[in-house]
């Protein structure tokens, strides 16, 4: 069995030659991204417009931050379905906290902003803590825990607002932060680069990152080696929740109001970005730079479909196919290399 696959794969390698080699060197996803951007630059002049590029950058920054949090949870072998609900809850709570403090002390804008941001981050922190604790101590399936907390968080967000947008945030927060352009680029870009750098550093250079990967790779082995698995599980979920909150604060600042319906598709897209980047759903494998790249890819792809005026309903079909195809290809490649090694 393995002999024949090896032979056929060798034959395939010989046949495709330089193209396959080049692809292997830079990787499939970056190549795809380059092709996509190349096509857009060549055939779609509107893509290079400043307004459009800023939009793509803003959208991809938001997705990158959520997706890097999601990746941490995927790496420990979990799932976080509640990021969407956390984004909604954070948006509402941040806006409300700012509006209330501003009303109490109209002159003290910076306190209001500080309060709002802290309250918002607390939402992600608490949700993540609950998710992590349920997964770690009660050994409940992450799918169901985060399904439950997502229902709870959405309920709280709607309850706080009755579904009505929350206005009354300080102007300084919206105009000078949310919609700011720093050194020619939208503000969220800098935040996302900082987040990605931090997560990358944590993953590569610290024991925390190594332990998180070890837990996802083999929980039993990590536990036996003396890793406090519960602590790192909870840490991963808490970080994921807080990164979702951070995204929400950026989005809320740009929008200028707190909305209980804000998350949109970010939950699904964050998982899709992780999966396309080759993060294993079985845990233990995942690189943040690839996740960032696939978030960028998804954002540009969506943008391209919008520019081409592809019906949004057909876009959803397309997204679905891409996600499944990406994982199927990944599985296929893995099986082939496994077979090759099996010799």
């Amino acid at each position: 069995m393995s002999a024949t696959t090896l032979d056929s794969s060798r034959a395939a390698r010989g046949r495709h030659g330089w193209l396959a080699n080049a692809l292997r060197k830079i990787g499939f996803l970056p190549a795809l991204l380059i092709v996509l951007v190349g096509l857009l630059v060549a055939f779609e002049p509107r893509f290079m417009g400043t307004f459009n590029l800023f939009n793509v950058l803003r959208n991809s920054s938001a997705l990158m931050i959520v997706a890097s949090g999601q990746m941490l949870v995927l790496v420990v072998g979990g799932f976080d379905l509640s990021v969407g609900a956390v984004i909604a809850l954070t948006s509402v709570v941040t806006a409300k906290a700012m509006a209330v403090t501003l009303e109490a002390a109209p002159d003290d804008v910076s306190t209001a902003i500080l309060f709002g941001v802290l309250a918002g981050m607390a939402c992600g922190f608490v949700t993540g803590l609950v998710n992590g604790a349920c997964v770690a101590f009660l050994r409940i399936s992450p799918f169901m825990v985060t399904l439950g907390t997502s229902s709870i968080a959405t309920g709280v967000a709607l309850l706080l607002t009755n579904g009505i947008p929350v206005y009354g945030m300080p102007d300084a927060f919206v105009k000078e932060f949310g919609r700011a352009i720093w050194f020619g680029l939208p503000m969220p870009v800098y935040v996302s680069v900082a987040v990605l750098a931090l997560v990358w550093f944590m993953q590569r250079q610290t024991t925390v990152g190594r332990y998180i990967h070890a837990i996802g790779g083999n929980m039993q082995a990590a536990m036996v080696s003396g890793v406090n698995t519960n602590f790192y599980l909870i840490l991963a979920y808490t970080l994921c929740g807080m990164l979702a909150s951070l995204t929400s604060i950026l989005l809320t600042a740009r929008l200028g109001s707190g909305q209980a319906t804000m998350s949109g598709n970010l939950m699904l897209e964050s998982i899709a970005a992780g999966v396309i980047a080759g993060v294993s759903l079985r845990g233990g494998v995942g690189r943040v730079e690839m996740v960032a790249l696939s978030a960028l890819f998804l954002s540009i792809l969506t943008n391209a479909m919008n520019l081409l005026k592809i019906n949004s309903k057909i876009q959803t079909i397309f997204m679905g196919v891409i996600v499944v195809a990406a994982v199927a290809l990944d599985e296929f490649a893995k099986r082939r290399s496994r077979d090759a090694r099996g010799r």
Binding site: M319, V324, E331
Partner: peptide, 18 residues
């Protein structure tokens, strides 16, 4: 194809919705 059930049905969720 050995694709995880979550991803597959997430994909078909989008496809059916479309």
């Amino acid at each position: 194809l050995n694709v995880n059930a979550f991803v597959t049905t997430l994909g078909s969720f989008n496809i059916c919705f479309g």
